[in-house]
Amino acid sequence: MNTQKKLLILFLFIVTIQWMVPAKMIYDQESIRFSGTAFKFKIKPIDPVDPFRGNYIVLSFDENTISKDGTENWVGGEKIYVSFTTDSANFAQISGYSRVPFTDTKNFVEAKVEPFWNKEKLTIKYPFSRFYLDEARAIQAENDGFFTLGDTTKTSYAMVYLKNGRASITDVVVNGVSVLE
């Protein structure tokens, strides 16, 4: 086999991998959305920009702390599995946490422990903290004070699908209005 043929075979191999990685990313997300369970997470958002990937809202969640025994030791950045159920108003509520994946439910997510720890409390960093927006819409929304969450009578939440430790976020609703509308 001559060098050009070898190079071409290698090139086709590279092309396949370059297609497989993004395709796998799509497959993973679609699979969570298709067969995962949807949860509504109460939020308080703000609005920064990423140099490569455009405007997004950073979401911080109301349900992001866990009370624990003072003798338990966790360090900032450590992996934690958190399981969920729904409260009376149908919002996501933490039902348990563990160092290993849950086997009795698929409604859990792999997250990280935040650095601001407290002996009796853990703060959780979820892997669905970003929601990307159209640039024009992001600027308009910011100017309109869309993200101020002034209206306390209406709720703001993120719609998240969970499936065996993985999560996929599909919508963010602020003061009762979807950011996608």
């Binding site: 799509i26 669905f128 929601f131 990307y132 976020i169």
Partner: peptide, 12 residues
């Protein structure tokens, strides 16, 4: 391409 997929699916 990987950036656009992160965007479409809001992968943080």
């Amino acid at each position: 391409s990987i950036s656009l997929i992160s965007q479409i699916y809001h992968i943080p």
